[in-house]
Design a protein around this nucleic acid. Structure first.
Lengths: 150, 150
DNA sequence: ATTAAGATTGAGACCAAATCTCAATCAGAA
DNA sequence: TTCTGATTGAGATTTGGTCTCAATCTTAAT
Protein backbone atom coordinates (compact mmCIF):
# COMPACT_ATOMS: atom_id res chain seq x y z
CA UNK A 1 0.00 0.00 0.00
CA UNK A 2 1.24 3.47 -0.85
CA UNK A 3 2.28 5.71 1.99
CA UNK A 4 -0.38 8.20 0.98
CA UNK A 5 -3.02 5.51 0.99
CA UNK A 6 -1.97 4.44 4.45
CA UNK A 7 -2.27 8.02 5.60
CA UNK A 8 -5.80 8.21 4.26
CA UNK A 9 -6.60 4.91 5.94
CA UNK A 10 -5.59 6.43 9.23
CA UNK A 11 -7.83 9.40 8.57
CA UNK A 12 -10.76 7.07 7.84
CA UNK A 13 -10.17 5.13 11.01
CA UNK A 14 -9.77 8.24 13.13
CA UNK A 15 -13.10 9.42 11.72
CA UNK A 16 -14.80 6.21 12.87
CA UNK A 17 -15.40 5.10 9.33
CA UNK A 18 -14.52 1.76 7.85
CA UNK A 19 -11.68 0.93 5.55
CA UNK A 20 -12.59 -1.02 2.43
CA UNK A 21 -10.88 -2.49 -0.60
CA UNK A 22 -12.72 -0.01 -2.82
CA UNK A 23 -11.34 2.93 -0.85
CA UNK A 24 -7.89 1.46 -1.14
CA UNK A 25 -8.10 0.95 -4.91
CA UNK A 26 -9.50 4.42 -5.51
CA UNK A 27 -6.93 6.09 -3.30
CA UNK A 28 -4.06 4.28 -5.00
CA UNK A 29 -5.37 5.43 -8.35
CA UNK A 30 -5.72 9.01 -7.13
CA UNK A 31 -2.07 9.08 -6.13
CA UNK A 32 -1.03 7.59 -9.47
CA UNK A 33 -2.43 10.65 -11.18
CA UNK A 34 0.22 13.28 -11.07
CA UNK A 35 -1.91 16.00 -12.58
CA UNK A 36 -5.50 17.16 -12.63
CA UNK A 37 -8.23 14.61 -13.20
CA UNK A 38 -12.01 14.46 -13.08
CA UNK A 39 -14.08 12.02 -11.05
CA UNK A 40 -15.02 10.38 -14.31
CA UNK A 41 -11.41 10.09 -15.47
CA UNK A 42 -10.80 8.09 -12.34
CA UNK A 43 -13.86 5.93 -12.85
CA UNK A 44 -12.73 5.12 -16.40
CA UNK A 45 -9.14 4.41 -15.35
CA UNK A 46 -10.39 1.94 -12.76
CA UNK A 47 -12.68 0.29 -15.27
CA UNK A 48 -9.84 -0.10 -17.75
CA UNK A 49 -7.87 -1.86 -15.07
CA UNK A 50 -10.81 -4.19 -14.62
CA UNK A 51 -11.70 -2.82 -11.19
CA UNK A 52 -15.45 -2.64 -11.06
CA UNK A 53 -16.24 0.21 -8.72
CA UNK A 54 -19.35 2.29 -9.13
CA UNK A 55 -19.36 5.98 -9.88
CA UNK A 56 -21.14 6.66 -6.62
CA UNK A 57 -18.27 5.13 -4.68
CA UNK A 58 -15.72 7.12 -6.64
CA UNK A 59 -17.55 10.35 -5.85
CA UNK A 60 -18.01 9.37 -2.23
CA UNK A 61 -14.35 8.53 -1.81
CA UNK A 62 -13.19 11.74 -3.49
CA UNK A 63 -15.37 13.65 -1.08
CA UNK A 64 -13.68 11.93 1.84
CA UNK A 65 -10.23 12.52 0.37
CA UNK A 66 -11.12 16.18 0.09
CA UNK A 67 -12.20 16.25 3.73
CA UNK A 68 -8.91 14.65 4.70
CA UNK A 69 -7.13 17.53 2.92
CA UNK A 70 -5.18 15.11 0.80
CA UNK A 71 -7.01 16.05 -2.37
CA UNK A 72 -8.36 19.35 -3.54
CA UNK A 73 -11.17 20.16 -5.90
CA UNK A 74 -10.79 22.79 -8.58
CA UNK A 75 -13.60 24.37 -10.48
CA UNK A 76 -13.34 25.55 -14.03
CA UNK A 77 -15.40 28.36 -15.44
CA UNK A 78 -17.24 25.75 -17.47
CA UNK A 79 -18.59 24.37 -14.22
CA UNK A 80 -16.63 21.15 -14.40
CA UNK A 81 -14.70 19.89 -11.42
CA UNK A 82 -11.14 18.71 -11.45
CA UNK A 83 -9.27 17.12 -8.61
CA UNK A 84 -5.62 16.91 -7.75
CA UNK A 85 -3.84 15.24 -4.91
CA UNK A 86 -1.71 17.49 -2.80
CA UNK A 87 0.82 15.04 -1.55
CA UNK A 88 4.11 16.84 -1.42
CA UNK A 89 2.64 19.79 -3.28
CA UNK A 90 2.62 23.16 -1.74
CA UNK A 91 -0.65 25.03 -1.99
CA UNK A 92 -0.94 26.66 -5.38
CA UNK A 93 -3.36 28.50 -7.61
CA UNK A 94 -3.97 28.21 -11.34
CA UNK A 95 -3.58 30.00 -14.60
CA UNK A 96 -6.14 28.44 -16.93
CA UNK A 97 -5.96 28.73 -20.70
CA UNK A 98 -9.35 29.45 -22.17
CA UNK A 99 -8.31 27.95 -25.48
CA UNK A 100 -6.67 24.63 -24.71
CA UNK A 101 -7.68 24.11 -21.11
CA UNK A 102 -4.08 23.88 -19.97
CA UNK A 103 -3.52 24.67 -16.30
CA UNK A 104 -0.36 26.24 -15.03
CA UNK A 105 0.26 26.16 -11.32
CA UNK A 106 1.70 29.04 -9.41
CA UNK A 107 2.17 30.12 -5.87
CA UNK A 108 2.48 33.68 -4.72
CA UNK A 109 3.20 34.30 -1.08
CA UNK A 110 2.36 37.98 -1.38
CA UNK A 111 -1.13 37.23 -2.63
CA UNK A 112 -1.58 34.72 0.18
CA UNK A 113 -0.67 37.37 2.70
CA UNK A 114 -2.95 39.99 1.23
CA UNK A 115 -5.76 37.48 1.48
CA UNK A 116 -5.06 36.96 5.15
CA UNK A 117 -5.05 40.68 5.65
CA UNK A 118 -8.39 41.18 3.88
CA UNK A 119 -9.98 38.36 5.86
CA UNK A 120 -8.81 39.84 9.12
CA UNK A 121 -10.04 43.30 8.17
CA UNK A 122 -13.48 41.81 7.55
CA UNK A 123 -13.55 39.77 10.75
CA UNK A 124 -13.70 36.77 8.55
CA UNK A 125 -12.22 33.45 9.59
CA UNK A 126 -10.57 32.29 6.42
CA UNK A 127 -10.66 28.57 5.76
CA UNK A 128 -9.44 28.44 2.20
CA UNK A 129 -9.48 30.21 -1.08
CA UNK A 130 -9.62 29.73 -4.79
CA UNK A 131 -7.83 31.90 -7.29
CA UNK A 132 -7.98 31.26 -10.98
CA UNK A 133 -6.56 33.52 -13.63
CA UNK A 134 -8.14 33.02 -17.03
CA UNK A 135 -6.56 33.91 -20.32
CA UNK A 136 -4.54 32.53 -23.19
CA UNK A 137 -1.34 30.56 -22.68
CA UNK A 138 1.88 31.25 -24.55
CA UNK A 139 1.47 28.24 -26.87
CA UNK A 140 -2.03 29.20 -27.92
CA UNK A 141 -0.92 32.75 -28.52
CA UNK A 142 1.62 31.47 -31.03
CA UNK A 143 -0.64 28.99 -32.79
CA UNK A 144 -3.27 30.19 -35.19
CA UNK A 145 -4.92 26.77 -35.09
CA UNK A 146 -7.73 26.50 -32.65
CA UNK A 147 -7.17 23.93 -29.97
CA UNK A 148 -10.25 22.35 -28.62
CA UNK A 149 -10.91 23.20 -25.00
CA UNK A 150 -10.99 20.21 -22.70
CA UNK B 1 -36.42 52.48 -19.80
CA UNK B 2 -33.55 52.43 -17.35
CA UNK B 3 -30.27 54.01 -18.39
CA UNK B 4 -28.54 50.66 -17.99
CA UNK B 5 -31.10 48.97 -20.17
CA UNK B 6 -30.62 51.60 -22.84
CA UNK B 7 -26.90 51.00 -22.68
CA UNK B 8 -27.45 47.28 -23.21
CA UNK B 9 -29.80 48.03 -26.08
CA UNK B 10 -27.02 49.96 -27.77
CA UNK B 11 -24.68 47.03 -27.27
CA UNK B 12 -27.22 44.68 -28.86
CA UNK B 13 -27.66 46.98 -31.83
CA UNK B 14 -23.96 47.50 -32.28
CA UNK B 15 -23.61 43.70 -32.33
CA UNK B 16 -26.14 43.45 -35.17
CA UNK B 17 -28.63 41.71 -32.98
CA UNK B 18 -32.24 42.67 -32.49
CA UNK B 19 -33.80 44.36 -29.53
CA UNK B 20 -36.92 42.72 -28.11
CA UNK B 21 -39.41 43.30 -25.36
CA UNK B 22 -38.15 40.16 -23.58
CA UNK B 23 -34.62 41.51 -23.49
CA UNK B 24 -35.93 44.77 -22.12
CA UNK B 25 -37.94 43.13 -19.35
CA UNK B 26 -35.10 40.84 -18.34
CA UNK B 27 -32.54 43.63 -18.33
CA UNK B 28 -34.75 45.86 -16.21
CA UNK B 29 -35.13 43.06 -13.74
CA UNK B 30 -31.39 42.40 -13.67
CA UNK B 31 -30.76 46.02 -12.73
CA UNK B 32 -33.43 45.88 -10.04
CA UNK B 33 -31.40 43.22 -8.28
CA UNK B 34 -28.84 45.01 -6.24
CA UNK B 35 -27.08 41.89 -5.11
CA UNK B 36 -26.19 38.44 -6.36
CA UNK B 37 -28.87 36.37 -8.04
CA UNK B 38 -29.12 33.13 -9.99
CA UNK B 39 -30.64 32.72 -13.43
CA UNK B 40 -33.48 30.91 -11.78
CA UNK B 41 -34.06 33.68 -9.23
CA UNK B 42 -34.59 35.96 -12.16
CA UNK B 43 -36.92 33.56 -13.92
CA UNK B 44 -39.03 33.26 -10.78
CA UNK B 45 -39.09 37.02 -10.17
CA UNK B 46 -40.35 37.58 -13.70
CA UNK B 47 -42.98 34.89 -13.31
CA UNK B 48 -44.21 36.44 -10.08
CA UNK B 49 -44.63 39.69 -11.92
CA UNK B 50 -46.70 37.84 -14.49
CA UNK B 51 -44.08 38.17 -17.21
CA UNK B 52 -44.06 34.91 -19.10
CA UNK B 53 -40.53 34.54 -20.38
CA UNK B 54 -38.95 31.15 -20.79
CA UNK B 55 -35.93 29.96 -18.91
CA UNK B 56 -34.04 29.62 -22.19
CA UNK B 57 -34.51 33.31 -22.91
CA UNK B 58 -33.37 34.27 -19.43
CA UNK B 59 -30.19 32.24 -19.85
CA UNK B 60 -29.61 33.58 -23.35
CA UNK B 61 -30.03 37.16 -22.24
CA UNK B 62 -27.75 36.74 -19.24
CA UNK B 63 -25.11 35.38 -21.59
CA UNK B 64 -25.41 38.48 -23.73
CA UNK B 65 -25.32 40.74 -20.70
CA UNK B 66 -22.15 39.01 -19.66
CA UNK B 67 -20.64 39.58 -23.09
CA UNK B 68 -21.55 43.22 -22.87
CA UNK B 69 -19.59 43.39 -19.62
CA UNK B 70 -22.57 44.78 -17.78
CA UNK B 71 -23.09 41.63 -15.76
CA UNK B 72 -20.62 39.19 -14.35
CA UNK B 73 -20.98 35.54 -13.50
CA UNK B 74 -19.63 34.16 -10.25
CA UNK B 75 -19.07 30.53 -9.50
CA UNK B 76 -19.50 29.06 -6.08
CA UNK B 77 -17.63 26.02 -4.84
CA UNK B 78 -20.94 24.17 -5.02
CA UNK B 79 -20.84 24.59 -8.77
CA UNK B 80 -23.77 27.00 -8.84
CA UNK B 81 -23.58 30.23 -10.77
CA UNK B 82 -24.53 33.61 -9.45
CA UNK B 83 -24.78 36.79 -11.42
CA UNK B 84 -24.43 40.39 -10.46
CA UNK B 85 -24.70 43.54 -12.49
CA UNK B 86 -21.68 45.73 -12.42
CA UNK B 87 -23.28 49.06 -13.07
CA UNK B 88 -21.34 51.55 -11.05
CA UNK B 89 -19.46 48.76 -9.28
CA UNK B 90 -15.75 48.53 -9.51
CA UNK B 91 -14.37 45.08 -10.11
CA UNK B 92 -14.29 43.13 -6.88
CA UNK B 93 -13.74 39.68 -5.45
CA UNK B 94 -15.63 37.82 -2.74
CA UNK B 95 -15.39 36.53 0.77
CA UNK B 96 -17.93 33.73 1.00
CA UNK B 97 -19.30 32.44 4.28
CA UNK B 98 -19.49 28.67 4.27
CA UNK B 99 -22.17 28.74 6.92
CA UNK B 100 -24.75 31.28 5.81
CA UNK B 101 -23.72 31.83 2.21
CA UNK B 102 -23.22 35.52 2.74
CA UNK B 103 -20.89 37.20 0.26
CA UNK B 104 -18.76 40.15 1.17
CA UNK B 105 -17.21 42.10 -1.66
CA UNK B 106 -13.70 43.42 -1.57
CA UNK B 107 -11.17 44.90 -3.89
CA UNK B 108 -7.45 44.76 -3.42
CA UNK B 109 -5.28 46.60 -5.89
CA UNK B 110 -2.15 44.87 -4.66
CA UNK B 111 -3.57 41.44 -5.42
CA UNK B 112 -4.63 42.65 -8.85
CA UNK B 113 -1.14 43.77 -9.57
CA UNK B 114 0.47 40.55 -8.38
CA UNK B 115 -1.85 38.71 -10.71
CA UNK B 116 -0.68 40.80 -13.63
CA UNK B 117 2.88 40.12 -12.66
CA UNK B 118 2.37 36.36 -12.46
CA UNK B 119 0.61 36.30 -15.82
CA UNK B 120 3.42 38.21 -17.45
CA UNK B 121 6.02 35.92 -15.91
CA UNK B 122 4.23 32.94 -17.43
CA UNK B 123 3.78 34.52 -20.87
CA UNK B 124 0.11 34.30 -20.21
CA UNK B 125 -2.32 36.78 -21.66
CA UNK B 126 -4.67 37.39 -18.76
CA UNK B 127 -8.30 37.96 -19.64
CA UNK B 128 -9.91 37.79 -16.24
CA UNK B 129 -9.74 36.16 -12.89
CA UNK B 130 -11.78 34.79 -10.08
CA UNK B 131 -10.79 34.99 -6.44
CA UNK B 132 -12.95 33.64 -3.70
CA UNK B 133 -11.98 33.41 -0.07
CA UNK B 134 -13.98 30.84 1.87
CA UNK B 135 -14.50 30.81 5.59
CA UNK B 136 -16.84 31.88 8.34
CA UNK B 137 -18.21 35.41 8.58
CA UNK B 138 -18.20 37.45 11.77
CA UNK B 139 -21.93 36.94 12.40
CA UNK B 140 -21.71 33.18 12.12
CA UNK B 141 -18.69 33.13 14.38
CA UNK B 142 -20.78 34.82 17.07
CA UNK B 143 -23.88 32.69 16.65
CA UNK B 144 -23.94 29.19 17.95
CA UNK B 145 -27.09 28.50 15.96
CA UNK B 146 -26.45 26.90 12.62
CA UNK B 147 -27.64 28.98 9.71
CA UNK B 148 -28.67 27.01 6.72
CA UNK B 149 -26.33 27.50 3.77
CA UNK B 150 -27.96 28.91 0.64
C1' DA C 1 -48.06 49.10 -46.51
C1' DT C 2 -45.93 44.59 -48.04
C1' DT C 3 -42.68 41.46 -48.19
C1' DA C 4 -38.55 38.80 -47.52
C1' DA C 5 -34.57 37.43 -44.73
C1' DG C 6 -32.97 36.49 -40.77
C1' DA C 7 -33.12 36.91 -35.57
C1' DT C 8 -35.72 35.64 -31.47
C1' DT C 9 -38.78 33.13 -28.74
C1' DG C 10 -41.18 29.31 -25.90
C1' DA C 11 -42.07 24.69 -24.64
C1' DG C 12 -40.27 20.92 -23.74
C1' DA C 13 -36.76 17.44 -25.02
C1' DC C 14 -32.29 16.64 -23.91
C1' DC C 15 -27.69 16.45 -21.59
C1' DA C 16 -23.89 15.75 -18.30
C1' DA C 17 -22.44 15.83 -13.70
C1' DA C 18 -23.42 14.60 -9.52
C1' DT C 19 -26.36 12.76 -5.81
C1' DC C 20 -29.68 9.71 -3.85
C1' DT C 21 -32.09 5.20 -2.82
C1' DC C 22 -32.20 0.88 -0.98
C1' DA C 23 -31.32 -3.90 -0.75
C1' DA C 24 -27.30 -6.75 -0.41
C1' DT C 25 -22.91 -7.12 1.49
C1' DC C 26 -19.08 -6.25 4.43
C1' DA C 27 -16.07 -4.73 8.62
C1' DG C 28 -15.11 -4.82 13.13
C1' DA C 29 -16.51 -5.28 18.05
C1' DA C 30 -18.30 -8.35 21.41
C1' DT D 1 -20.21 -16.52 15.42
C1' DT D 2 -23.23 -13.00 15.72
C1' DC D 3 -24.73 -8.42 15.63
C1' DT D 4 -24.83 -3.56 14.34
C1' DG D 5 -23.99 -0.21 11.60
C1' DA D 6 -21.05 1.24 7.56
C1' DT D 7 -20.38 0.56 2.67
C1' DT D 8 -21.41 -0.69 -1.85
C1' DG D 9 -23.51 -1.04 -6.72
C1' DA D 10 -27.02 -0.29 -10.04
C1' DG D 11 -29.86 2.54 -11.57
C1' DA D 12 -33.24 6.25 -10.69
C1' DT D 13 -33.33 10.99 -9.77
C1' DT D 14 -32.01 15.75 -9.44
C1' DT D 15 -29.87 19.80 -10.92
C1' DG D 16 -28.42 23.37 -13.75
C1' DG D 17 -28.20 24.37 -18.04
C1' DT D 18 -28.43 23.84 -23.31
C1' DC D 19 -30.60 22.56 -27.62
C1' DT D 20 -34.34 22.05 -31.12
C1' DC D 21 -37.55 23.77 -34.13
C1' DA D 22 -41.82 25.72 -35.53
C1' DA D 23 -44.04 30.05 -34.79
C1' DT D 24 -43.34 34.80 -34.33
C1' DC D 25 -41.13 39.12 -34.51
C1' DT D 26 -37.79 42.91 -36.28
C1' DT D 27 -35.78 45.42 -39.67
C1' DA D 28 -34.68 46.84 -44.17
C1' DA D 29 -35.92 46.87 -48.84
C1' DT D 30 -39.37 47.37 -51.87
Amino acid sequence: MKDETRKFQKFIQKSNLLWSIEREIITNQVFDNHFHFTADDLFIQLNEKGRKISRATVYRTLELLEKSSMVSKIQLASGKHFYEHIFGHKHHDHLICQKCGRMIEFHCEDIEQWQEKISTENNFKMAGHCLKIYGICADCMKKKSKNKPK
